[in-house]
Structure formats: C-alpha cells, structure tokens
Nucleic acid binder design. Structure first.
Lengths: 210, 210
DNA sequence: ACTAAATGTAAACGTTTGCTGACTTAGCCA
DNA sequence: TGGCTAAGTCAGCAAACGTTTACATTTAGT
C-alpha cells in the first residue's frame, strides 16, 4: 500500500512561517518522522511501539495512522528518507573523499542525526515492501560507491568490485550499529577524527583507488 | 535472574544414549536453543515470539519458561552459547589465519550454522543483563583479535589498535547480517572462497600483521 | 508392579499492541 | 461573527503477546 500522504495545501512550500502555527500538518509529519527514525534505528521495528513514537514527537498516536496509514507506512517513509539522505551524500562525493563522507555519517554530524540513517538500513520489519525499499537503497549506495572506484555495470569481472563495495558498506553500517545501539567502548566514544583514519584504510583496502 | 536450569540428573554426562529417549530434557533444551538462536539472529528479539521458537523446535511453548525461566533467559542463553562458540574459534586461531576464520564463520560452515552466531551479537532485547553479556562477548573477541596483531593491554597507544579490532569485528558482523537477514545480492550468495580475499584485505588493512 | 519425580500438554490469564470511529478544537475566509 | 474544514483528541476494540496453572504421561528406582 503506497498511500500518498495528505499533505496540506499550504501555499508556501519553501521558507519557515514567521511564527509557528499551533496546528501544522507538515511540521507534525516531520516530528513523527524524526522521532520514528531514531526509535526504529536504535531499538528496531518490532520493539518500537507507535505510542513511543507519538510520545517522543509530542503528538497524538492517532496521527500516525492519519499521516502514514500505519506503523508500516511510517517505517517505509523513514527508509525512503534515509535513502534520499544517503544518496545525496554518496552521489556528490568525489571518489577519494568517500571514507571521510562515511566517517562523517557514522560520527553523527550533530548528536543523533545521520548516524541513525545508516543504522536504520539493517532494521527489518518483515514486510516485503519495506524490504524492497531497503534493498533498493543498499544496492544504489553500493553501486555508487563501487562506481567511484572504477566499477562499470556489466563488465565481466565487475561483480568482484560490487561485492567489495557492499562489504565496505556493511562495515560502515556495522560500526554505526555497534556505536549507537550496542554502545561498545572504545568504539562508541571515538570521534569522527578517530574513525576517519581506520575507515580510509578499510575502504582503500577493499576498493583500491585507481 | 540467572536461573540455573534444572538439568536432569542423568548419570551419563558423556556419550549419546544408545536409543533415544522419548522424553529427554537435555535434548529438548538444545532444540529450543538452536531454534531460538536462528530466529533471534534472523528476525531480532522483539519480532520473535516464543510460539515461533517452540514450533520450530517441535516442542510445547510452556517448556521455554520451564527450562529458561523466560524469553529473556532463553535469549541470554543464546548469547552465552554464541560467546563460547566465538571464543573457541578466535582463541585458537593463529594470527595470520584470522581472516580465514572470520570468513568461515560468515560463510556459514553448514547451512544456517555459525553465521547466525555472529548476527546474534547485534540483536538487542533491551534488557540490561543481556546487554552486559553481549558487550562482554564483543569486548573479549575484539581483545583477542587485537592481541593476535600485537596489542598488549595497558600500552599507551594500544587504544588505537583495539579500536581498529572492533571495527574489523563490526565489519564482519555487518557482512553477516547483510547476508543472512537482509539478503543483499551479490553479497548474499557469495561463497566462503569469494569472501576470504576481500576479508583478508580488510583485516590486514585495519590490523597490519607484524 | 508400584510409586514418586521428571517431563510434556492444554487452556487460559492479564497485558500490551496497532488501529479505528466518533468527537472536539483551531484556523481561515466570507 | 459565523460557519466550514483541516487538525488533533479520546476511549476502546480485537488480536497477539509472554506467562502460569492444572493436568497427563513417561521414566527410573525399588
């Protein structure tokens, strides 16, 4: 069910309203999306209840059904958002800056921000459509990563390169989860600066720059 | 609650009984443990129901409470078993064979076997005691891995080496999950032989052999 | 063979879950 | 101001969950 969300027909799609309205569908939707992303990423899909999310967002539970049809719909929206965010990063990163970009993603860039987008990608809801979305995001990301290191689709030996790109992606996601969800020390309190060196070694070893 | 399991006082602790008993507490316990490990590893803690596990094991639901006190207790038992298994592998692996050992773990070594032990390590139940067990397993494994590459506890710069070992472990776990749970292709159908090369590059890059 | 303990079964319990329908309130334009 | 619609609230349902209780069957010792 790919329900279109009933976004309110507010004229101004760009720019903040000068003073916040007490009722603003777009803002409420975003509040739910943010709260859900963090909960899903940290606790997983099944362990997260819609009441948890609504409370975090400071919003009534019933609005989840209104804006996202169901808990599943909200989860899929989170995956799509994570895919957009990730694609925006990997898409415009020059080949030799990929490790830095991953490190920045993992390290957080502002408290509990982008790091949870990565961790979200290995949370599963059991729903087939959500799985398709996630697989799509992962395939696209690994192909972009592989392409930055010389991979061209269809070439005979290129499967090896794609495999290696997926392993690099898996490494990044694994680190993100061990940091944010499992809280393994010293990995958990390592800074972006601490991570970028080892990550560069890791990515360069899997996908030698050419 | 670290409930001791009421193991039956069968005299023969070693060797299989010649003909299988129709009721055997030790065997039932093991059936539950195996079924639970696979479910927990693939679907996560919250998404797995005790009825699922009992059905997989071909056993009555109430026996989970009998042998493991609770679903939590069963999960903790799975973590302990995974820790033992992993420790047995990493403990007796010479330094230069570590990547091969990881690859063998990931690749499965017999259908859905050891691979799920690795994936289990990033499943969380939210319970504090289970978190402690998992953290212990991860810390011990990463220390063994780091020690195999020259790390000595307490040395000033050794924190860097431990961090890198944890990242290597995170990479292995990430690959295991992307393979077994997310089923990302071509990573998912890669053989042990396909994996060992990239894994060797990865581990050697993070922890240079000395 | 008899008995007591060990093992397994069936049904139900109270709670929590995602979701819904009827209702109330705020925003906006005539 | 009055009224209409979008936005948010509230109470509660049915299903699924982990666990328990009372009962049945098997095993082992004598």
């Amino acid at each position: 069910m790919t329900a279109e969300t009933p976004v309110p027909a507010t004229g101004d799609t760009a720019g903040e309203p000068a003073h916040r309205r007490r009722r603003d569908a777009a803002e409420t939707r975003q509040l739910l999306l943010d709260a859900a992303r963090q909960r899903f990423a940290r606790d997983g899909y099944a362990a997260t209840t819609v009441r948890d999310i609504a409370d975090d967002a400071g919003v009534n539970v019933a609005l989840i059904s209104r804006y996202f049809t169901s808990k599943e719909g909200l989860f899929e929206a989170c995956l799509r958002a994570a895919g957009d965010e990730l694609g925006r990063t990997t898409g415009q990163t020059p080949a030799d800056r990929v490790p830095e970009a991953i490190a920045r993603h993992i390290a957080g860039l502002g408290a509990a921000g982008l790091s949870s987008q990565l961790a979200l990608l290995l949370r599963s809801s059991g729903d087939a459509e959500a799985d398709d979305i996630r697989r799509g995001v992962l395939v696209r990301s690994s192909e972009q990563l592989a392409a930055a290191r010389g991979w061209r689709p269809g070439e005979p030996d290129s499967q090896q390169l794609l495999l290696r790109a997926q392993m690099a992606l898996a490494a990044g996601i694994g680190v993100a989860v061990l940091r944010s969800s499992i809280r393994l020390e010293p990995l958990s309190s390592a800074t972006e600066h601490d991570l970028v060196g080892p990550l560069r070694d890791l990515v360069d070893a899997l996908l030698p720059p050419h």
